Computed example of a mutant assay.
Amino acid sequence: MRANPMKDIWARGGAVVSAWLSIPSPITAEMLGHQGYDVATLDLQHGMISFEQMLHMFQALSATPAMPMARLASNDATHIGRVLDAGAYSVICPMINSAKEAEAFVSACRYYPHGVRSYAPVRGQIYGGPDYFPKANDEIVKLAMVETRAGFDALDEILAVDGLDGIFIGPNDLAIAFGCPPVSESDHAEVRDAIAHVCERTRAAGKVAGILCSGPQAALKRVEQGFSFVSAGGDIFMLAQAAKNSVAAFREGQRVAAAETV
């Protein structure tokens, strides 16, 4: 089976950087997959991506160096199995609030005797290789999102779940859970402390700490803090920001040209 590149990066003490895809486009996926990201994560929870569009995006990513990953829409065994069968090589599950929910998530990702995943990997085997079945339980990385007070309070129990590889923080929802505005890099002390606590407890448990970031500078700061899986800005935000900068440069050029003709 194709080796999961994230595991090699972590074994060397490095940090994984992921593209974050919400636009339902194989062209966008293919383009970003060639830009140097370790992973490309399709956001099936908040992105505008259907199952068929996800499948085509995974196919596009298979021709790039970036490993295909998905943030799941929900903690549902049928949904999780379909996403993995379509070719997701690792998954992030949102809104994990208890050890029981984490156990259900991990079980849905693993074949018997360690889980309840039904066998029919389809594209997963095409991407992963003919020995997908005996190795998938170990190669597929499973990250649980902690983004509520319930999940925060149950963190140690969630971390103790066998087969769970780590925690991925949803900083916006976590900020809301602490009564603060939804901001990826919050300046509220209670949110900063909560994020630091999750990172520290996760690393102490020998597992991967990940977090969604607004851009590369924020991602670098999170790596310095101890996170080893980060995003570096989403496709929608980057497109909007590039367009805004382009138009601003054009308008400034118009202003200068007009001033010179006076």
Rank of each mutant, 00 (worst) to 15 (best):
I96E: 03
H46Q: 12
P121Q: 01
A29Y: 03
H34K: 04
T148I: 13
T28K: 02
L55Q: 02
S98L: 15
S18Y: 01
L32W: 12
R12V: 12
K207Q: 10
V208Q: 12
G81F: 03
Q53F: 06
V83N: 11
L159W: 13
P182H: 15
S184G: 00
R117D: 02
V39F: 00
F227W: 09
G163T: 09
H46M: 00
K221Q: 07
S50R: 07
P171T: 14
L61M: 11
A60W: 04
V223H: 05
R255Y: 13
E147K: 05
S246G: 05
G115W: 00
D131N: 05
K135Y: 02
F105C: 11
R201C: 03
S118L: 06
P26V: 09
H46R: 09
I92Q: 13
M67F: 01
G166H: 05
E139Y: 02
E30W: 03
A194C: 08
L174I: 06
S50E: 04
L212I: 04
D8S: 14
Q53C: 03
R251V: 01
N245F: 01
G166K: 08
L220G: 07
V247I: 05
P130D: 02
K244C: 00
M6K: 08
V191K: 15
L61F: 00
E200T: 08
S74T: 09
D43W: 01
A248I: 07
V191E: 07
L32G: 14
D131C: 06
M238G: 08
A189E: 14
R203H: 07
L61N: 10
A120N: 03
F51E: 04
G253N: 05
T202H: 08
I49G: 11
E224R: 14
F237S: 13
R203E: 05
G124C: 00
A249G: 11
V141I: 10
N97Q: 09
V183T: 14
V256K: 02
